[in-house]
Design a protein around this nucleic acid. Sequence first.
DNA 1: AAGCGAACCTGGCTGC
DNA 2: TGCAGCCAGGTTCGCT
Length: 293
Amino acid sequence: MPELPEVETVRRGLEPAMVGARFSAVETRRPNLRFPFPERFADRLTGARVNALTRRAKFLIASLSSGEALILHLGMSGRFLVETGKTATQPGVFHQDVGRHAAHDHVVFRFDGGATVTYNDVRRFGFMDLVSQEGLEASPHLSGLGIEPLGNDFHADALDRLFSGRAAPLKAALLDQKLIAGLGNIYVCEALHRAGLAPTRAAGSIAGPGKRALAARQALATAIRDVLTEAVAAGGSSISDHARTDGSLGYFQHSFRAYDREGKACTTPGCSGTIRRMVQSGRSTFHCALCQD
DNA sequence: AAGCGAACCTGGCTGC
DNA sequence: TGCAGCCAGGTTCGCT
């Protein structure tokens, strides 16, 4: 499910229920997700108040009154459901379509105001960790992350610096969280299509002093920022698993120009090409061979 | 060092 | 209807 726009959508959904609230009870229904839960996970959370809920790349970070920070990652299929005290008796879309969801409810956070936040993750690639707030930036999960693509430091010059000398294809370089943190398969495909750049092109080819390289990295920086901003505004993309915290669906998938459009006409104005699917480093790449080069 | 493929895990869809 | 095979938003590990 979740790339940056989906994680940001989840953050905005969790914020009103969690920030300012105190954990009254925490229930883990299995010993691990992708990794084991940290020692005394429920005990360390219970009684702590959430001071802030922020996002770094695809990570959610809850700053706690205990001095610790709760790090959350949704993996491929992680989702949260918020039930406020008032509507707790009203089943949401989230649990409506079968028991499959309840079967994969792995963690339940209860808050003193009566709200419940349930974490559901079919494939269990997500994880949760607790670290001290002082050690947050240096923690193994966050320390190696690259720049935020929606941050002020992200622009064509940053791409020049990051991609210089890189032989890896643009697709792989953009997926590398150590360079730019937050993009995933969908938005890399979409950004490259918007920028008119072939996914197979060497990342280093858009670095350096040439005019064409400069134009290419400016186009790419703009495309990345635009597609992420539009996707956040749409509440993310709902392919199969992603849902917002109230169970409703994001709708950016209706705006895809390349991803999952194999065989369909390219939508670039004036282009008569067709979207093709190829595999790069084990992931599907969707692109137009005519207008991306 | 960088880059690629496999592994982690479950479920949905396609095709025989 | 059943079953095998492929595919899925991410990250990490191990082998070139």
